[in-house]
Design a protein around this nucleic acid. Structure first.
Lengths: 144, 144
DNA sequence: TATTGTTATACTCTATAACTATA
DNA sequence: TATAGTTATAGAGTATAACAATA
């Protein structure tokens, strides 16, 4: 095994543990328990990329369609998204945010990400740059 | 709000989504379904840091003690760890790896991390350096 | 009284398989 | 037939609360 291969194996190991522990920490940091992190992630994606079908949303979030169905049903029940029929394709549905969700996201941007934002503020600018670049790379790996 | 504060909020948002999607991808990448990623993480920690109590293991993995109890029970049932009484403190238990687990970890280092290692190999050395540094920072944030 | 670990219980997250409706 | 979405079902992962044993 080459030097690079060994290093890569070690990195794979360390990165896996770090991501698992960090994501646990993020989930546990919830304060408002009515909207979960998974729900919030879906809402954030809708906010960022606009209305879309459940299938498209599932693909973006890297989950299977049935998993997204559950999320959408829950969000609709909370009045955070609407489901409207696709104008031309009767099989499809378009998911969109309600004003309540828009307001919630604005609030969340302040409240729910407070812990993480605070933690990030305590880092050096160089460390934040590393995380910013790492976020892009992880998105690439998640989608590839 | 200062420029740095705004940037940090955006980073918090992007980093959260990236970590969630990446960790989903890692979980789904399982091939051998007998040992889950959570189990493997606990075994890896024992391998790296040696025998320890369930409480200590829970703390290292950033989960609550009852959650770790379930993991340990499952691992003991599979013959991957042993539970022996602490020599002086009757309340405590020491969890240690069996030879089977050692062998499994050796195999996993090759097999289960193959996907991630392969992905990492396809990155540039600079990108790997970013992830290596990011892993350290995320561990710090997870523990802080 | 404090600490360690476990049991009991419940909720979140996600998946696969099977079904319905539309194209 | 193929595609989009949903329902049914199940399993993994985690938590809080209450309990038992030991210090």
């Amino acid at each position: 095994m080459s030097r690079t291969t060994l290093d890569t194996a070690a990195l794979a190991h360390d990165l896996r543990l770090a991501v698992m522990r960090f994501s646990r920490r993020l989930r546990n940091q919830r304060v408002d328990h009515s909207v979960t992190l998974t729900h919030l992630a879906a809402l954030s994606t809708l906010k960022r990329n606009g209305p879309m079908s459940p299938g498209e949303l599932a693909a973006q979030e890297r989950v299977q369609p049935p998993s997204m169905t559950r999320v959408v049903v829950a969000l609709e029940g909370m009045g955070l998204v609407t489901r409207t029929p696709h104008p031309t394709d009767g099989r499809q549905v378009i998911i969109d945010l309600t004003q309540t969700a828009e307001d919630l996201l604005t609030e969340e941007a302040r409240a729910r990400e407070a812990w993480l934002s605070g933690q990030l503020q305590s880092l050096t600018p160089e460390e934040r740059t590393v995380l910013r670049e790492a976020a892009e790379i992880m998105e690439k790996l998640a989608g590839g």
